[in-house]
Design a binder for these strands. Structure first.
Length: 275
DNA sequence: AGGTTCGCCTGCGGGC
DNA sequence: TGCCCGCAGGCGAACC
């Protein structure tokens, strides 16, 4: 479940190892990830060119290379590794990007195969997967007024709204729950009824929790270029996610979970009232 | 058209 | 020990 902090940590981890190296080959062991990997096109258009950097948009990683960009998504179980070139691939190691003639490998592992490797040409923001994405939560375009404006007249539950990539990118189940706790807002609130003050509190809480998680990943996970599907070292800082049945650290009320849109939503009934 | 549910996948933990 | 079940979840598709 790499969410934005995990993807950002991975980006920082692999960028120094990948940037400036030539993509000299592509080894595909299976191509049926979320979408078929366009192997022929990648070989024709990307192989032979240097990878110029590692960018992130939401939970997508973008690797500019020759006339386009590799787009990587880790789904919920994907991870990236930089194995020794002679290390045999494991069962779920679906592909290798071969760099600098085999001196280095960037290996994608993804047991559940919800991830993706695609090839983008043209403006990345015009690609269907990226075109409708909302602002980066840690960018200037994300603030309480933005949320307030998008929520006007809508009746979705607050937590679902926050996890909608068209509203803001990168906030998955864990950080949505944590941000709502920090803002003192119940996950089932109808978004059209929140006021400006509540939206500003929530925007600030989203930024705080993501910033703290990235900082935690950046220190504890410095050499970590993988994601094993767990919340990583930020787990110890989680206040409601994964803590159902335990006492809230702030007020002592037992943490509960409700289902919103088929998804478990942990919250503290004491701290997160409906008003 | 906004809102909800489904489906893709595998590993894992719990119950028996 | 082994099997079945439910759950985890990003996100596009399908549905109401």
């Amino acid at each position: 479940m790499p969410e934005l902090p995990e993807v950002e940590t991975i980006r920082r981890g692999i960028a120094p190892q990948v940037s400036g190296r030539v993509l000299s080959d592509l080894i595909l062991r299976r191509t049926d990830l979320r979408w078929p990997i366009p192997g022929e096109q990648l070989r024709r258009e990307a192989v032979g060119h240097p990878i110029r950097g590692v960018e992130r948009r939401g939970k997508y990683l973008l690797l500019p290379c020759g006339p386009g960009r590799l787009l990587l998504h880790l789904g919920m179980s994907g991870s990236l590794h930089l194995p020794e070139p002679d290390l045999p691939p494991g069962k779920h190691d679906h592909l290798d990007l071969v760099l600098d003639g085999g001196q280095r490998l960037l290996r994608l592992r993804d047991p559940r195969r919800f991830g993706a490797l695609l090839w983008l040409t043209g403006a990345p923001e015009a690609h269907p997967l990226l075109a409708r994405l909302g602002p980066e939560p840690l960018g200037e375009a994300f603030h309480g007024d933005h949320l307030h404006r998008l929520a006007r007249g809508r009746r979705v539950a607050l937590k679902n709204f926050l996890m909608d990539g068209r509203v803001v990118v990168g906030v998955g189940n864990i950080y949505a729950a944590e941000a709502l706790f920090r803002a003192g807002l119940h996950p089932a609130l109808v978004v059209g009824r929140l006021d400006a003050g509540q939206w500003h509190r929530l925007a600030a809480a989203v930024q705080e929790v993501l910033t703290a998680a990235i900082a935690s990943g950046g220190t504890s996970l410095r050499d970590y270029v993988k994601s094993d599907g767990k919340p990583g070292y930020f787990k110890q800082a989680l206040r409601v996610y994964g803590r159902v049945g335990q006492a809230c650290g702030r007020c002592g009320t037992v943490i509960e979970s409700l289902r919103l849109g088929q998804r478990a939503s942990c919250f503290c009934p004491g701290c997160q009232g409906r008003g």
